[in-house]
Amino acid sequence: MKINEIMTKEVKTLLPDTPAVEALKRLFENRISGLPVVDAQGKLVGMFTEKDILRAILPSYVSQVGRFVYENSPKTIKCKIAKLAEAKVGELMRKEVVKVSEEAPVCEVAHIMLTQNVRRVPVVDADDRVKGIVARSDVLDQLLKG
């Protein structure tokens, strides 16, 4: 079975100029953790997720300090949350995106999701235009159906 048979074809996308706060609101409203970012021609340019917001508001050294427990919300984080109001999706998104073609087998996508540690994978055509998106639950559902 090919991925284009199970992918969600009506894809909500973001533009790089979309304010980050507005993009985050859309994630909350749709109860999803990330959306693909496309340019004016519909070409995939990045992926914007809740993780990118966390990365923006936490200090950059957070992965290097091990156990460093904040009891109260420190001012540094509050200041960064305030600065988020001016940030755009294009500044925070991940530019290197794991993507697959429409002809990719479901098993291959499952393999990519596990090894690359991604929850959703945009499906693109030969020109990198977003044709759909597939979530981990969609892949699991299909695999278990047999």
Binding site: Q64, V65, G66, R67, F68, V69
Partner: peptide, 11 residues
């Protein structure tokens, strides 16, 4: 050092 970081020694 990795162990000490995990344990929170430096913090």
């Amino acid at each position: 050092v990795s162990l000490l970081k995990d344990a929170g020694f430096f913090a």
